[in-house]
């Protein structure tokens, strides 16, 4: 922490309010993303508070997924993109050249739209992240995996068949397994990219409940096309349209008294 502060240039340090830093886990400054000629994300300034759930809503193609994936630099892999601006995790810009991408992704976990367990056993799926981070101790692994599966509310359903293939689980279970897998490496932030879009209502309810539980330990950013879901689970909501951040506020306020006309039109279902 101290070292980082020294590394930062003076002006930047002065401009920063320490209390502000403590409250916020991540923030973006003038963030712009292009895919080839397409300007997908335009000038986003957004701060993400610790131990809160931030929902990102907006019509499809509004850049919300792109934005989410830029937060743990998954855009580096998924599509060829160019990025400008800053994304701070604590006080470090994750796009600085001396930053280790791998370390960033360990700190900022991600759950994808379509559940994507590896074709391995349930145990090995959750163990994967720990193993690649160099943990070999069997005891520790077992404890950690139990903890993660419990955190993901999956333990009871799978405790007696940890060795069976993850692909044999139901869709909702697979998604919770992916959450457990993400939690196992002890991330600080967890990103959810429309995690329920392929699930039935019961499975969705379970995951929503889980997210409420998770925010005690983690900071959560969730992209969703389902406004009711955003209203149910999030503390803050950001409304994106055509790559721009139209409005960002407490969820209650967004859904009851939005300050922008477009936001109101969207949440009352007039388009999108």
């Amino acid at each position: 922490m101290v070292k980082m502060a020294i590394n930062m240039d003076y002006a930047e340090r002065r401009n920063r309010d320490l209390t502000f830093l403590k409250r916020f886990k991540m923030s973006t400054t003038n963030l712009n993303i292009w895919y080839g000629a397409v300007h997908a994300v335009k000038n986003i300034n957004l701060s993400i508070e610790k131990n809160k759930v931030i929902a990102i809503i907006g019509p499809s193609g509004c850049g919300k997924s792109t934005f989410l994936r830029s937060l743990n630099r998954m855009n580096d892999v998924i599509l060829k993109s160019r990025i400008e601006g800053k994304i701070l995790l604590d006080e470090k810009n994750i796009y600085d050249t001396d930053v280790d991408v791998v370390e960033i992704r360990r700190k900022i976990g991600m759950v994808f739209q379509k559940s994507n367990p590896f074709p391995k056993s349930i145990f090995e799926n959750v163990a994967y992240g720990l193993r690649v981070n160099g943990i070999k101790d069997k005891n520790y692994l077992e404890q950690k995996i139990e903890r993660s599966l419990k955190d993901a509310a999956l333990w009871k359903e799978v405790e007696d068949r940890l060795d069976s293939l993850a692909l044999d689980l139901s869709g909702g279970q697979q998604q919770r397994l992916c959450i457990a897998r993400a939690l196992a490496v002890e991330p600080e932030v967890v990103l959810f990219d429309e995690p329920c879009s392929a699930l039935d209502p019961t499975a969705t309810a379970k995951i929503e409940e889980l997210i409420q539980e998770l925010k005690k330990k983690y900071t959560i950013v969730i992209v969703t096309h389902n406004m009711q879901q955003a209203a149910r689970i999030s503390d803050f909501t950001a409304f994106f349209m055509l790559g721009e951040l139209i409005e960002f506020d407490k969820t209650d306020k967004i859904f009851t008294a939005p300050s922008k006309k477009t936001t109101e039109d969207y949440i009352t279902g007039r388009f999108g």
Binding site: R105, G109, Y128
Partner: peptide, 15 residues
């Protein structure tokens, strides 16, 4: 091999 496997692994902090 589906891309989603690669993404999942990278998102877990694997190199």
């Amino acid at each position: 091999v589906p891309h989603s496997f690669r993404w999942a692994s990278l998102a877990l902090g694997a190199s």
